[in-house]
Amino acid sequence: MNSWMQQHPATVLGLVLWAIGLLWLMPGRKSGASRTPRTGVLIAVAGLLSFFAGCGKSNSDLASEVMFWVFATGALGGGVLMISSRNPVYGALWFAIATLCTCGLFMLQSAPFLAAATIIVYAGAVIVTFLFVIMLAQQSGAAGYDQRSQQVWPASLGAFVFLGSMAMVLQSDPPRYERVEIVAAETPAEQPGTMVALDPTKPVIAPQPPAIPNFLSRADSKAPVGSMKGLGRSLFGDYLFAVELAGTLLLVASIGAIAIAPRREEGAL
């Protein structure tokens, strides 16, 4: 850990600045008169820039580079505004923006189904339900306790530790994870980690991933990835047990939700 800190000072500095900026931006007990948001934004942006400087250069083409920056900025900015806005409705909307930008990032990684499913589930259903509840609950304006952040310090510290450990794993030398790149079948991979635009006419095959010692899943390297067919075959073939387990869990959860919901005789709507 010490060597990682010494090798990547920009990353560590960026994370610290980012945490301070967020602490500054989160709405506190007083109604914002003591702190100006501009300072917090400046600190957070400086932290982000420093963090990105510590991440090193990517080697993808200009178009996907620009798209990546647009979506990444949107997702991060949406996330910050979500936790720092005083109005819960605006918070929910910024959450939606952050989700949509994340879906854009999924698209860039050639996972269109994941993107569409996330939009349907999160932006289309979950956040609409949030809005529904917020509008029902707060017809006479937001209550005081809803206008300020709770547990600012533990939250910032937790996020800082989480991001730091992720950066440490990703930047560790030698790498602790296997980089699995997706390449078109005919063209050999020139540079590791480049993203190749998926040509619908060519089958796309993932290179052999390392064997996963998990009896519940067995990855099949021959299946085409990036298409609905490949995803379906992988989910319901290679990872069938995991999918069934998750499905059972969801079923149990929904039965539980119905069981604890109040009945009409008990005074529900």
Partner: peptide, 21 residues
């Protein structure tokens, strides 16, 4: 050649409610 055609329509259609809400 959008592989997920129908799912895309549902995804975008589910965002339409934001205008009304």
């Amino acid at each position: 050649n959008i592989d997920i055609g129908l799912v895309f329509i549902f995804a975008v259609g589910s965002l339409a409610v934001y205008g009304i809400v």
